[in-house]
Amino acid sequence: MSGWSVEIDARTCIGTGMCVGAAPKYFQRKSSKSVPVHDHVEPDEDLLDAAFACPAEAIRVRDEATGDVLVPEA
């Protein structure tokens, strides 16, 4: 299995909309928080950039093949 999984922890998301602004393809607004548009996506640098920018570290991106957590960085 290839590709990445994307999750947002609704408890830590503070609704800045930074992810929605940076990568509307991958993130959308849901009431005052954000959620991923898709849970599984093809690898894309734009997604990583947006995920890194989250000030609350609420976004988790994982490589499904290896299980490695790409964001947040350890």
């Binding site: 609704g15 800045t16 930074m18 929605v20 602004g21 000030p55």
Partner: peptide, 15 residues
Amino acid sequence: NRGHLSFGYGIHHCV
């Protein structure tokens, strides 16, 4: 209900 825009919204949201 939260969601005021005083810190902006989107990529320039207040650091």
